[in-house]
């Protein structure tokens, strides 16, 4: 696969603090790369360094095989950025805002008009083109923010938490839009706090903590990194005796036993037929239960295991 972004040994220091520590990774053409990390992990510093909004201390950043710099306008023309904070002009309508930001890249009025219309279609703001930002809901404002960042049809798009504080309807619309962008040939670098979004749209994920990459790969590869096979939850109809609890803990592959008021959660490190074995044990031990179900580990479990923090921390 063709490398679009090549980052080698990127280091950025703020006096004593090392915000990015010798970071190296590549982004390939037409992939959606998820950049994950707790707050203060160095995600935004990494993105700002890539975009030349920040000076870095050492390392190299190549985009489209060319060195990125503040004056690399030919590279910049192919990049689109959607910042976490909504960055639009209050005095301009939806269509005027998109036209302005698209106009920073596209001079031809006719082409720009077409591109602006495509962007509006993509984010589903057709009914709101004459609205001012103040008149839009949080979700619609986010969609406008995205449209402003991608209207010029960039080949590489940086999306920094584009779905923060939006309603489910807008979130789905935004995620659909991102998928469409990729279908249209864009390469996307995506940061988010929402694991489920990463699971849905990202091809590859890089987890950053304290300025270092602590894991990278696709979802399956990351899940393999943690010592969890599955989690089984049993909703009980009666309380367990201590003997019964001890027997359950001693079952094969059980690494963790968590008891709640009317349920227990068992974490298994491996095993292919844990659920059937457990059901058999429950029946044989005549423990009455209402429901029993199994969950595969999520990226959140992976994240928690690797960083020791919840992503929303």
């Amino acid at each position: 696969m063709k490398k679009i972004i090549e980052i080698k040994n990127l280091t950025k220091k703020y006096k004593q603090l090392t915000a990015i520590d010798n970071l190296s990774f590549d982004v390939y053409e037409n992939e959606i790369l998820g950049l994950l990390g707790p707050n203060g992990s160095g995600k935004s510093t990494t993105i700002n360094s890539i975009l030349s909004l920040l000076n870095y201390d050492s390392g190299s950043i190549k985009i489209f095989n060319k060195e990125m710099s503040p004056e690399a306008y030919d590279i910049k023309s192919k990049i689109g950025v959607v910042f976490q904070d909504v960055a639009v002009f209050e005095e301009l309508t939806v269509i005027e805002n998109i036209d302005y930001f698209c106009g920073l890249y596209i001079n031809d009025k006719k082409i720009r008009k077409e591109y602006v219309k495509d962007a509006i279609d993509l984010v589903g703001l057709n009914e709101f083109i004459k609205f001012y930002p103040k008149q839009l809901s949080g979700g619609l404002l986010r969609r406008l923010n995205i449209a402003c960042g991608i209207a010029h049809k960039p080949k590489v798009i940086f999306l920094d938490e584009p779905t923060v504080a939006v309603d489910p309807q807008s979130r789905n619309s935004i995620l659909e839009g991102i998928k469409k962008l990729r279908e249209n040939g864009a390469t996307i670098i995506y940061t988010t706090h929402y694991m489920e979004e990463v699971e849905i749209i990202c091809d590859r994920i890089i987890i950053i903590d304290k300025g270092k990459i602590i894991a990278k790969g696709n979802k399956e590869e990351l899940k393999k990194l943690v010592n969890i096979e599955e989690k089984i939850t049993i909703e009980l109809l009666e309380k367990l005796s201590n003997v019964q609890k001890e027997k359950i803990i001693k079952l094969n592959h059980v690494v963790e036993f968590v008891e709640a008021e009317k349920s227990i959660v068992l974490t298994y490190s491996s095993g292919r037929k844990n659920l059937s074995d457990l059901i058999e044990f429950m029946n044989n031990s005549k423990i009455k239960y209402s429901r029993i179900y199994s969950e595969l580990p999520t990226l959140n479990d992976v994240f928690l295991e690797l960083t020791g923090k919840e992503l929303r921390d």
Partner: peptide, 18 residues
Amino acid sequence: IRFNNKKIKNRNNISSKK
């Protein structure tokens, strides 16, 4: 004030317009 707003400025700075 509008154009020096950090968010707008960042958007302008990452664009291909000098």
